[in-house]
Design a protein around this nucleic acid. Structure first.
Lengths: 116, 116
DNA sequence: GGGATTCATTGATGATGGTCAATATTCGGG
DNA sequence: CCCGAATATTGACCATCATCAATGAATCCC
């Protein structure tokens, strides 16, 4: 289970609870912070933006290296962080690796802020 | 102008643009990342949660130190980060400092994720 | 099969961040 | 005016992070 999946189960649990004493539990907070940390880098935000608006909702690494003015290893590193956070999914077709948004992941992250 | 205010003007500019080449500009990305970075720590999320649910929508430092199991200087440090990010506001009454949510700030942060 | 291409991984480095102990500051009360 | 309480600030320490150069792994094409 990746980070976004953990987040969704956690927020589902919290939806009907009458807000006990520690309003936001330590574990829940850690789950949410994990996702938000992946979103807290400007280059990663731009990566998500490019992927989201890419043709077919996807983009390969070669499309992402140039507009960010970063080295290819650095871009791969950021993409890995986004995949590990459950925000992006990776599909390898031939020599190329195509990244696309995980459906609902950004909405879940957004909700984790509103539902504090 | 704090970080949330900069974020609001930036997203307002982007709302009607036909999405030029660099879909999310470097400066806009940096503004959004600044807010999200303030939200990317579990203890700060819990601080926001406690403040939001506090009596009158506010809480003083003495109410925040114990439930987080952190030292008082650390809590003050986190609160300063949240204030600088434009998420919390500080009002000193007597010896106590009361923190409260800046209206619309969480909603703006949430939107900065959805509007990638 | 060999070379070229695309991407991931490793290792290193400088910068940033979270935490605490100690100290400073500000304010109310006697 | 001085004392105690609440909070902020400073300095230090260790961990994490963003980045790059170099290398490795997988795939396609001739």
């Amino acid at each position: 289970m990746n980070a976004v999946q953990a987040l969704e189960t956690a927020t589902a649990d919290a939806c009907c609870a009458p807000a006990a004493r520690p309003l936001l539990g330590a574990e829940d907070a850690q789950d949410r912070a994990r996702i938000l940390k992946a979103l807290s880098d400007p280059n990663r935000l731009r990566l998500l933006s490019i992927v989201k608006s890419g043709d077919g909702g996807e983009a390969c690494v070669c499309d992402l290296t140039e507009p960010l003015d970063l080295g290819q290893p650095t871009v791969s590193h950021h993409l890995k962080i986004l995949v590990d956070a459950g925000l992006l999914s990776r599909e390898k077709r031939g020599t190329w690796a195509y990244y696309s948004l995980v459906p609902g992941a950004l909405e879940a992250a957004s909700e984790s802020i509103l539902a504090l």
